[in-house]
Simulated scan of single mutants.
Amino acid sequence: MILTGKVDIAAPADTVFGNVTDFDLWVPQARRKGVTMRRTDGGGDPVPGMTWETDFRFRGKIRHMDSEVVRLLRPEEMAIRSLSRGFEFFVTLQIVALAAARSRLHVSLEAKPRTLGARLLLQSARLGQSGLEAKFRSRIEGFGRSLERPLGA
């Protein structure tokens, strides 16, 4: 299943890319939502091969996911591959400069099942795909609004 969304952002492409790749600021935001993120590659600037572990609650259970930045092209694109027990996810963020102070963020999320249970869950999710797409686009718009200002602000 693939979900996509785009949002126009009132900020230059370099600023948007810097905010998207500033993982040190994402960790506290995730923690406030009950998500635990641990960087596992030793830290430093974002580069391909950067990895982290994530634990979060979903449907009443604690879930674990390992993620890796597989592509990082400044200031246009970042791709992340994540593995959980049942799924493999690919998230691609592309930033297009529209003007000096305006950008467009395209986000694509592809979910691939790794187990029979995940395949069944994905099939049932496809039945409500239009609702999922609307919710995904809404989240992307909110994410885009948050990128218009520095994350620490």
Rank of each mutant, 00 (worst) to 15 (best):
K33G: 06
R104W: 09
R31Q: 15
T51K: 13
W26T: 03
I140F: 04
T54Y: 02
F136I: 07
M1S: 07
R114E: 08
R71K: 12
R39G: 09
R38E: 15
L151Q: 05
A111Q: 11
L3S: 01
H106I: 06
A100V: 13
I95T: 05
S84E: 11
A97Q: 15
K33V: 04
L147I: 11
Q94R: 15
D66K: 10
P12S: 14
N19M: 09
I80P: 00
L105W: 01
F136V: 07
R126D: 12
R39K: 12
L73W: 07
I62P: 00
L121T: 10
G117E: 08
Q123K: 13
S67P: 04
S108G: 11
R63M: 13
R145N: 08
I62H: 00
L83S: 08
P75C: 10
F90N: 08
K112G: 06
I2Y: 08
I9M: 03
S67M: 10
L127P: 01
Q129P: 00
G34P: 05
F89R: 01
G86Y: 01
G144V: 06
S103P: 05
R104Q: 15
A118E: 03
R32Y: 05
A30F: 14
A101C: 09
F89K: 01
V70E: 04
I2E: 15
I140H: 02
L121R: 03
A11W: 03
A13E: 08
T115Q: 06
S146E: 10
S130V: 14
R139T: 13
E76F: 08
D22Y: 06
G152N: 13
R71F: 02
E133I: 03
G18Q: 08
D14V: 12
N19T: 11
F58P: 00
L151H: 05
S108V: 12
G18K: 06
R137L: 10
L93Y: 08
